[in-house]
Amino acid sequence: MGGMFYLILKDLKAYYFKPPNISWGVLFPLVMALAFTLRNPSGLAELFPGLVAMAALFGTTSMEAIVITFEKRVGALERLMLAPLSLWTILMGKVLGGSIFGVMMAGAMTLISLALLGGWVTSPLLFTLSILLTVLVHSALGALIAVSVREVFEAQTLSNYFRFPMIFLCGVFLPVGAMPLPLRLLAHALPLTYSVDALRQTSMGPLNPGLFLADVLALILFLSVFLASAMRMLNKSLE
């Protein structure tokens, strides 16, 4: 655990807490919230859960995939693998580092949305749990993408293959229920759908305990699959 803690601290200091990232982390949600305020001043509160989910998605996947791929390129990840840490510790350190940055971005988006869009949070604890699960799942997805490719640009490209469809299919702007059946089925194969739904239920309501539990279980399932696949890829790199 100690090694993981220092790994996270180093990543935050060396990569995440750099002025460009912090300013991007604050500016991105702010600009998104402002854009929607100007475009359609009525019914903005409806967008709140989707925007928080999107901020968490971009906050986790964008930097983390770059960090891991960059460290692979320059040999720094190998330096880490020389230390007396298990592969699992290294992977979780990277995922949690990305998650902390994701929580910051989702938190910033939440505060901005509450102030500008007139959103509200009915179940703060469950809303926080939903944010935490969302950042963990998408941070694990970022790690999986990063360990599957060689170059930084490949990580970015592959991330976008997942991110942009998710923005349009997962209920961020358009309710999943309003989409044609094939798209609805596709949406349910993507983790952000469950994030948006969990965040919506715990913020704007109404909260349906059964459906919320289903969202939580689906997110835990995605998290397990992404982590197991990333571990498999990391293990394969030793072969």
Binding site: K13, A14, V74, A76, E78
Partner: peptide, 13 residues
């Protein structure tokens, strides 16, 4: 202790 062929400490630190 291992000194790899490439000096791979962290540039940012």
């Amino acid at each position: 202790g291992v000194v790899p062929e490439t000096s791979n400490l962290y540039d940012e630190l």
